[in-house]
Design a protein around this nucleic acid. Structure first.
Lengths: 195, 195
DNA sequence: TGGTTTTTGTTGCTTAGGCAACACGGGAGC
DNA sequence: GCTCCCGTGTTGCCTAAGCAACAAAAACCA
């Protein structure tokens, strides 16, 4: 496995950058043509014009690629709302909830087949990103409990609520939903109230 | 310099294929923004996202890149008329003349500045491709003289006539021009007349 | 004019990627 | 049962590309 500079892609070998991009692009193309289950690693590498061995230098297997693709997608949703390089506010939290809802909604609509397969993968990736982000926020804030505890509780709660929202037949607007659950979420953070 | 499989690009290392493509694309982009003279090798490599040393592994310098770019362009014009993988006929010769005219016309219109600079480069590349193609044709045909001689005479003649046509203020249609000069060109080939 | 920057080619060393071959496992077809 | 085929991971060796540093030339600017 090549240098895993987790997320921190400061300056990375141009070759690595290129092949990752080629793989991701090929992945998107092939998944739209054959779907995920029918797709083989060969399909991806041939489309990308890279060697099969190179694929395995970057990803465990096609599931690993799917994982990082999901994560990228959600991170994009987060970045879109500029939540990544900022500190905690209630409004940012509200936007974060909205981001999760939107992402789940889109993910479900795209990956109709084998939903149950994907949902657990989506859940794992999204909760991980959520946890990391919340932890970063909480470490910059005064809390009544350990940030790790609060981050775990909050990330699970947000995801669970967002999932329920996405499953409910009669979809209320994301914004209204966010406003509705915000009071439930905030206490999870165990913030020290400002006088 | 990397493996120079002159034209014969049967199966070539995907990495080579990729970087050549990146360089060519970057070249086209930069030349449209800064022009050829102002452009530096750095500009190209930075745009292409490759290392400068890699550029020099593929091309002598930016002039070398220009050369092959011109050649590619003309070859494209030839392929467009399916003249590359076929044998000699008068009609193919006529189309070849048209191809040269079209290419020179386009080349001149694109590279307005420093025309005289470019024209000699264009001439060299086009005549070389012409020579190779004519030679291939003649080697499959019965001629009264050595194919090399006939190919030289014909390539020079075609280019000279096409150049004159492109310079003439009042442009007659390429097709009419081709019909007009065809009788002058055919004898250069020294074909053995079929009874 | 002289000094500073930029660009140019070039080189030695490191790393990512290509390639071929392999063992393994799961079907499909008799 | 038995092949035959195909996809999967993995490995060792080779080559292309990255990188840093260099000297020399060119361009720029006092």
């Amino acid at each position: 496995m090549l240098s895993n500079l987790k997320e921190g892609q400061e300056k990375l070998d141009p070759r690595v950058r290129r092949t990752r991009q080629l793989i991701e692009q090929a992945f998107m193309e092939v998944i739209n043509e054959k779907g995920f289950q029918e797709m083989t690693v060969r399909d991806i590498t041939e489309r990308a014009g890279i060697n099969r061995a190179t694929f395995y230098a970057h990803f465990q297997d096609k599931y690993g690629l799917l994982d990082q693709s999901i994560r990228q997608g959600f991170l994009q949703e987060v970045d879109k709302r500029m939540l990544n390089a900022c500190h905690f506010t209630v409004d940012n939290l509200r936007n974060l909830i909205i981001a999760v809802c939107e992402f789940i909604k889109n993910a479900n609509s795209k990956c109709k087949p084998a939903q149950s397969q994907f949902e657990t993968l989506v859940e794992a990736q999204v909760k991980e990103v959520l946890y990391d982000l919340l932890l970063k926020w909480l470490e910059q804030t005064r809390t009544n409990t350990e940030p790790e505890i609060a981050a775990t509780a909050t990330s699970w709660a947000i995801y669970g609520l967002a999932l329920q929202w996405s499953h409910s037949k009669r979809l209320e607007s994301v914004e209204k939903f966010a406003d509705e659950v915000l009071p439930l979420i905030v206490p999870n953070l165990q913030l020290v109230e400002a006088a």
